[in-house]
Design a protein around this nucleic acid. Sequence first.
DNA 1: CGTAGCTTTGATTGTTTTCAACACATGTGG
DNA 2: CCACATGTGTTGAAAACAATCAAAGCTACG
Lengths: 247, 247
Amino acid sequence: MGPAFLSYSDRPGLRLFLRRIEQRSHLTDAERKAILSLKYEVGPVEAHADFVRLGEPLDHCVLIEAGLVGRFDMLPDGRRQITALHIPGDMADLPSLVVPKAGWALQALTPSMIARIPHQALHEAVSAHPGLGNVLWRDTVVDSSIYSQGVTNVGRRQAIERVAHLWCELGLRYEQAGLADRTAFDLPITQNDLADTLGLTVVHVNRTIQALRRTGAVRTNGRRVEILDWQALVAIAQFDPTYLLLD
Amino acid sequence: MGPAFLSYSDRPGLRLFLRRIEQRSHLTDAERKAILSLKYEVGPVEAHADFVRLGEPLDHCVLIEAGLVGRFDMLPDGRRQITALHIPGDMADLPSLVVPKAGWALQALTPSMIARIPHQALHEAVSAHPGLGNVLWRDTVVDSSIYSQGVTNVGRRQAIERVAHLWCELGLRYEQAGLADRTAFDLPITQNDLADTLGLTVVHVNRTIQALRRTGAVRTNGRRVEILDWQALVAIAQFDPTYLLLD
DNA sequence: CGTAGCTTTGATTGTTTTCAACACATGTGG
DNA sequence: CCACATGTGTTGAAAACAATCAAAGCTACG
């Protein structure tokens, strides 16, 4: 059985996406309805499968329904950097709506369920409800702000601070998405992918996580993160959520 | 004499901005005219003066007419990261049009001339020419793509590669802006600010620049960069300009 | 001139990478 | 059910890279 792409409406993906955008934009009932009635196809993606490649022409946007997706860059010599992690409810390549040639690549980091929303459907929704244009634009600005913080994380924080910062951010984002509590969430990502996200090596990520466990602020077992002392983790990370542009 | 803000029309800033957006968007004559007739105020900013502060409410966008502007983050303990460099023609905080509370800070890195364009003027232009909405959105996506590459630069490249990459990028951007040749441009930025851009210390930036000079690919004297062997620099940087989304 | 800011140098320390190996879990085919 | 392969996590020792600390030149500018 290949990934049979079927049409659905009102699946969890759109509800999550709506929830995400309503955290930063006020929508009218009509706009809300327009979002929820977007047509799309949904299908599974295997872990570590690329589903958008650099330079590829795109005629749809990818909404994460379940799982974890990375946006990544590769250097010619093979070094890899994951520049963004996308959780359910994120529209991973909304920018393609205005730049239809992928300037990025997307890969599932865990088995995921993704929805493909045709650009046409989004364009039609925006035509019918012009206010949605700004809503979607705003959503891309939020991701942009997260990248920008990613530069700071990787450029100016030490290893232990980087891991702490990522966990604070993801905790908050999962909580906002209504998928978990900020202090306890699943993150079934390999240490290798974590390393590529944080600009470190696997070995050092491993030792750093151990160091973080030794502080007593967190407990982890590879697929789950439990934050025992949120304030302590925030202090280690020097975490300030302003950049998430919440409200 | 304080920075007397006067109204002008058709100053170099708008021409540069128009040139920038026309590299990725096709504009009609009417749209072009609407851009060029935007009203704004222009004034000088001293080197190292902040002119947008984190969290500040914004009612205008900042267009760089001359000089160099950094977008930066500060950690509570004082560490600083410059997450983007803006050259003339860049609209440094165009995202504020849809997120009017600054999620970033802007500082002039050299004496600069900046134009402040009221949000209202931009909103009016977009109302009159709806196509401009996508043009501006696209422009913010370009900056976003540059941030994203910034994560890779700082996360996965070594010091010498980082400097090389930044110089390749800026060479290309200056050339595209029509301000210089990619192989010879002014970059009157201190090594301290370079360090904050590249996620390194001043001392290491200094030694790294010396190493780069020793390769023979570049000649620099602090305020000017001359690239003697573009291909060699591209090879050191593993530079691939796809992310600049130039057509 | 004299000063302040910037660049450069040297010596030392610290963090992170690299390399190599082993442990552990999971899943598969024999 | 075992043997085996594969992917992931963990450990140790050594090397490389970058940070830190401290001080000395240089340059532009008043």
